[in-house]
Nucleic acid binder design. Structure first.
Lengths: 161, 161
DNA sequence: TCTTGTTTTGTTATAGTATAACGGAACATT
DNA sequence: AATGTTCCGTTATACTATAACAAAACAAGA
């Protein structure tokens, strides 16, 4: 669910994507002996519920509503944890966060971000990443982390126009 | 000067890079009937003088020293102008700005950012960009702007360690 | 079960990044 | 000189993120 193959198809059952992501997160944390606390779980769920990358301050009210403390550090801590475990990614161009559909793989994909509807989709970019890594290496540079973000227009918005 | 071929070589005469960049900027603005005002020129020079990407608030004091107004909008306006003309790039992961060595080309390159010394170098990435564009296109996504940022360790810092 | 060390959360304050809005100055052209 | 446009000064504020420390929850051994 919500894999690259689905991409911008809006008509899939997203609640299934969310459920699967939450299950994966739970088992991943269990396997790593880490605690997916109620706050972390809720933050992950909120991020997944949105197809648009979510800003930290957009998450806060929902935390408050759920009865949790809702000062910025609360949500940033949860997001830090989730990022470290590869469960969410931060999109630097947007200062926003989005769920990762394949938290097991170490590699970050490439984000396709629609300027019109703000939807973001993570696409595979292993080939491009390898290419960049090689070129960097040719300059003597050792790659540790790559961030590829693409702004443009998604198929749905193109159709609309 | 300061082209991709120089990359991380620290021993080149950077004042030459700066001079050439300023010349190019002047002629580019002239050709486009745009005004490279004293503030804009100074901001561009300050950005170029640093091999590390420069934050907007690091530029402000220098503006003040030069006798200009130095409230944030001043520097952001200058940076916006310079970005629009392709004279500087913003590195999203760092919230910082760096001079572009080839403002004529429309395409943005790929930034190699050293975690240790904070130096950033713009490398060509046309091949990778084309690849990503194709993959996006296969998903029905039309690419308008790409941002490729790479964190890692530069050759100089590797040697040091 | 109690203790003890560790991890997580609550809380307050503050740092850092960026823009809105409006009036006035400088400029280019007629 | 008049006028429309671009640029700048100024104040205020929005948005994003972290520091620092105390309290609570938890985990694991004695």
């Amino acid at each position: 669910m919500c894999a690259d193959t689905i991409a911008f198809e809006t008509h899939h059952d997203h609640s299934q994507c969310i459920e699967q992501a939450m299950d994966e997160a739970r088992s991943l944390c269990k396997a790593r002996s880490l605690r997916l606390t109620p706050i972390r779980e809720l933050v992950l769920k909120l991020v997944w519920q949105s197809h648009k990358p979510l800003g930290a301050y957009e998450i806060l009210p929902a935390l408050a509503e759920a009865g949790f403390n809702s000062a910025p550090p609360t949500v940033y801590r949860a997001l830090d944890f989730l990022q470290e475990q590869g469960l969410v990614h931060r999109i630097a161009m947007l200062n926003a966060f989005i769920g990762c559909p394949h938290p097991d793989d170490a590699h970050h994909g490439c984000f396709l971000i629609c300027r019109h509807c703000n939807t973001a989709v993570e696409a595979d970019s292993s080939a491009a990443e390898a290419l960049i890594r090689e070129q960097a290496s040719a300059l003597g540079f050792t790659t540790e982390q790559q961030s590829i973000e693409v702004l443009g227009c998604c198929p749905n918005c193109q159709e609309r126009a």
